[in-house]
Nucleic acid binder design. Structure first.
Lengths: 260, 260
DNA sequence: GGTTCAATCTCGTCT
DNA sequence: AGACGAGGTTGAACC
């Protein structure tokens, strides 16, 4: 059976359905009055009230109130769910080993409970992130400027990683910091720290650059920039290049390639 | 009526239930085969598959696959939900103004759909966070060391905010950085930047400190510290004080106080 | 409205 | 298993 629903079951009937659902590795949906306690990375309690509970076959456990996107309490995938009856009540426990975390739900009055085996073989296709921007710039470096040659991605320096390191037409070093969203002051501070890090780095290649009197150019790459960040890059001698993150889904891309 | 469930309804029946639920400001739970498109801060699409959809009266819209804690697609509170029939199918749209975001769900085969008015007047009580640590240290400064006197919280410097600024018994300035979880290298870098910021700050009070040859002490406060961070604080002359975030719920605290 | 920062962040990725 | 960084982060507090 693909799914089953019980309306206003007593806790014993609900318990049987929960056990059956777990055997079948189905997803449980429960609308009931419950009380919740959590102890683990933090500590919390939530008094009696009606919530929607989702228990997924991967061990994820979610408790939703009627507000917000985030669940009020939860456990991550691979948690172990256990259910049992205590007096007239259904207890749902979700346990995790490392870190040690325990979620305990006491269920009083059940409006409905269901389980369902969800057939879903699709994964989300998405675009418009920093990584997509990085891929695009490596493929088409002229988007930054004519003659730009990217050398290294994720180049490690003292305070983090330089998104893209490369050279311009005159052999000057170019330090690119990418942001998929509007860049703020923090992005400018970040790139400024990377430039300082490079100045302080003892590295044959960088020594050679300095010996040849080559400059180190800092480039902030983002779709747009906030006003105070704009002012700061001018003071700091950092450059700004406007690039939109590519908004092409892989599926679309594939179709386009197949067309040729 | 508090809740309603329909099993295997056609899309027209489901549409009527959705409209009724929205009039009653109820929470909708839907288990169905659907296809999802999102366009806004990013771009995504998800092909046909069975998912659980939650639509809350505050405008939150969640689509859950049978894995993970996070919804595969969602809209935040205050989004506007619209539903309509297109051919044989039910379309659910969720729209947000700033930033402009549109979530479109095409629903094909519905296993069940329900709405429920959730009675819940409780809020989550929780403890064990950075703020609780900060409160505790302000109340009981000797947890840091005998004679420590906190002066300012959230003191603004170039690269952020100093969690707690204070003085020791000898009048030296103390810069506290709090972490509610195990502190890593990034926490040490953060406190190091704050110390540099203070060195560079032109401020009468700080000038006086320097004139009196007072030191500026950096203190990392966390339950524990990672090995590489431990090495770094030794090099940097930063101190580490182990403090557990308090794990006392307000409810418990109140009970304790009432007992006296 | 925006801006900043913590979070039981989650989740992927890499060591 | 631990560490690190991005995220349509979310959510809250403050301006």
């Amino acid at each position: 059976m693909k799914y089953k629903i019980l309306e206003k079951p007593d806790c014993e009937k609900a318990y049987e359905l929960v056990e059956e659902a777990m055997r079948k590795r189905a997803t449980i949906t429960l609308f009931a009055c419950c009380k919740v306690e959590y102890e683990g990375r933090a500590l919390s309690q939530l008094n009696w009230g009606e919530r929607i509970i989702l228990i997924k076959p991967d061990g994820s456990f979610l408790i939703h109130q009627d507000k917000k996107v985030e669940p009020v309490n939860w456990q991550p995938p691979k948690s172990k769910t256990r259910s049992y009856l205590s007096g007239e009540r259904l207890i749902l426990e979700s346990h995790r080993r490392t870190p040690k975390e325990l979620l305990t739900v006491e269920v009083r009055q059940i409006q409905f409970i269901s389980y369902a085996n969800m057939e879903d073989f699709e994964e989300l296709e998405q675009a418009g992130y920093e990584k997509d921007m990085s891929d695009m710039i490596m493929e088409r470096p002229h988007l930054i400027e004519e003659g730009f040659t990217p050398k290294t991605r994720e180049y490690s320096v003292e305070h983090g990683f330089i998104d893209i390191l490369g050279k311009d037409n005159d052999g000057n070093l170019m330090v690119l910091e990418l942001k998929a969203r509007k860049a703020g002051v923090s992005a400018v501070k970040q790139i400024r720290r990377y430039l300082q890090d490079l100045e302080n780095t003892e590295n044959d290649y960088l020594k050679e650059c300095k010996a040849q009197k080559k400059k180190i150019r800092g480039i902030l790459v983002a779709p747009s920039i906030m006003e105070d960040a704009r002012e700061m890059i001018e003071e700091e001698g950092i450059e700004f290049v406007s690039v939109e993150p590519p908004r092409e889904l892989k599926r679309d891309k594939k179709v386009t390639l197949d067309a040729f």
